[in-house]
């Protein structure tokens, strides 16, 4: 069984994440808010490749995305946690492949990332204006919804391709 992280083409697919974050296609946004591309890529990866690989992939993506951000905020803890959790879900029980399940997991993942960033703004940077709270919750929920809607289309396709490659 060839693991995903041993296949260069699968690892190289992660390069699409920073490119998509920078490009932010306007036709894939919900009221101007784009999906969490990291969550959409990490979900199928962790489900196929396991918790250790998922956590490491989450950390690697987070480091790249943190470099693209201004400063002061990090996605590292949220993506490592999600990679580990999804990896464990993929190893235990029946394989997750239904659209609703993938959409729900992606929704939860985007919410976890959003809430972790909001907590950092509030606790680390000390920003707590009412307008800021309103904006943060709006951003959290909108990003979670668009991520959850795109997951059944994108992540299920990735899951299918990567499962085939991992069995080959």
């Amino acid at each position: 069984m060839a693991r995903l992280h041993a296949q260069p083409i699968c690892v190289a697919s992660a390069l699409a994440i920073p490119m998509l974050v920078l490009a932010q296609p306007a036709w894939l946004t919900l009221s101007g808010v784009g999906p969490s591309w990291a969550v959409l890529w990490l979900l199928p990866w962790a489900l196929v490749d396991g918790p250790i690989s998922g956590a490491i992939a989450g950390a690697a993506i987070a480091l790249v995305l943190d470099g693209l951000g201004v400063d002061g905020l990090t996605q590292l803890p949220a993506l490592v946690l999600l990679g580990w959790w999804w990896g464990r879900l993929g190893r235990r029980g029946r394989p997750i492949q239904r659209s609703l399940n993938l959409g729900l997991l992606a929704w939860i993942g985007a919410m976890v990332v959003g809430v972790s960033l909001w907590l950092q703004l509030r606790l680390v940077q000390g920003l707590d204006a009412p307008l800021l709270q309103h904006w943060a919750w709006h951003l959290c929920l909108t990003q979670a919804v668009i991520t959850g809607l795109l997951a059944p289309m994108l992540s299920s396709w990735q899951l299918l391709v990567w499962r085939r490659r991992s069995r080959a």
Partner: peptide, 14 residues
């Protein structure tokens, strides 16, 4: 402006 993230956690332009 080659990249725009005006409605994201990082509000920035490249």
């Amino acid at each position: 402006v080659i990249s725009r993230n005006a409605a994201a956690w990082w509000q920035q332009l490249e």
